[in-house]
Design a binder for these strands. Structure first.
Lengths: 216, 216
DNA sequence: CTCCATTAACTAACTAGTTAATTGTAGCAT
DNA sequence: ATGCTACAATTAACTAGTTAGTTAATGGAG
């Protein structure tokens, strides 16, 4: 069949895609429903028809992106036999996801800055799941005598804080590099960055030698 | 003189204080001018009288907080003779500031998430100054043979990303600790946290021994 | 008496959300 | 195939409330 004049699934995903970009750029309150409708070239009433209200649309967007992120990391972690491999997979997969979905970090950081005002439960559970995942890896490593002096919560923030800031400041960093000649890692690939973070986390946790690493 | 019925300076700072709290909680678009006026118990027109418009108020708030932060860190850095002392002062002062002004991290993170939509110049210059400061310390340390394999931009994000996330997630972390029994560093003092971060950064940069440290 | 500080009342534009009417299409009987 | 039908998808027009910002008048203090 050719392009239909009516396609519910296509309309919904068009709305969600545009909403995601706009929410990432301007935040929940910064975006109007009319704006999303205009960007998606659909009638505004469709948003209420499919998502009930503005909050429903926001929740759908966030749920989608949070689930996709978590799923990808769990998937990547599965293929690793070693604790170090799992740690590396966690870092590199989170980083690669943040780079591939540049809408994710601003949505994530902003929601945290709001103290999860819009999505108390969803955000809370999602944050927890991610932390529990890393925390498990770190504690396992500690039991194996691999890591020393671990505070999982802080190590967690070191990883996701660094990556989120790195991705969100992309344009800012490039601007500073061009205008002021600062070395802001403007032309670093995300893989180099996550590799560097991983290497530094190993040093931080006083890992003796690099043994079995997960296949990239 | 007793409490005046008219006090321009007091009115202005009352407005700025309330605006700061509200902007930190809900973001620029999430706060209405009427709301700030009500919280400050002044007439809404006063805000336009003193700050021209909503953006002017926001800028005044951000400028104040960014300047205070930078000033405090530069001040703390002065008293240190050694590179390690400067690094430690940078980390602990930033952390203590973020804790003392809990409005700072959400304002900071949100503005970055917006790609500095509201304060392009101010935010850009402020970010740059802070980075240049740390970058200088790190490069000096590298020349002295103290630090190895430094990428200043990423180390910078490791420090400020971790601290900002730690402070903004305060209530979230405590909730998770109470409800789910997770160890989210819910009862950690900020000094312990910044001490831990400093120690880990030293390991990360492969510093051999801890020499002269800045007096706390 | 003269400014600076403050106020109430206003506007025009925008906000989320509703509603009733309309259109397209898949499925089914013929 | 054709026509009918029922329901899902879509629309324009609307509302009631909120928004940033203005203005002209009024207050107090030096």
């Amino acid at each position: 069949m050719a392009k239909q004049k009516r396609d519910a699934a296509a309309t919904q995903s068009k709305i969600m895609q545009n909403a995601m970009e706009l929410f990432a750029k301007k935040g929940f309150e910064g975006v109007s429903v009319d704006e999303v409708a205009a960007a998606s070239e659909i009638n505004k009433a469709m948003i209420f028809y499919y998502f009930k209200n503005k909050a429903g649309l926001y929740e759908a967007v966030m749920q989608g992106v949070l689930e996709a992120m978590y799923k990808e990391i769990v998937e990547a972690d599965k293929c690793c036999q070693s604790t170090l491999g799992e740690l590396k997979a966690f870092i590199t997969t989170y980083a690669s996801f943040a780079k591939r979905y540049p809408y994710f970090p601003p949505l994530f950081l902003r929601e945290l800055s709001d103290n999860s005002a819009h999505l108390p439960e969803l955000m809370f559970e999602s944050m927890k799941k991610l932390f529990v995942l890393l925390s498990g890896i770190l504690q396992k490593g500690e039991k194996e005598g691999l890591f020393k002096d671990v505070i999982p919560m802080i190590v967690h923030f070191m990883i996701i804080g660094t990556i989120n800031l790195y991705v969100t400041t992309d344009t800012l960093r490039k601007k500073a590099e061009n205008e002021d000649g600062l070395d802001t890692c403007g032309s670093c690939e995300i893989d180099e960055v996550s590799e560097y973070i991983y290497k530094k986390i190993l040093l931080m946790l006083e890992v003796d030698d690099e043994k079995n690493i997960c296949r990239s």
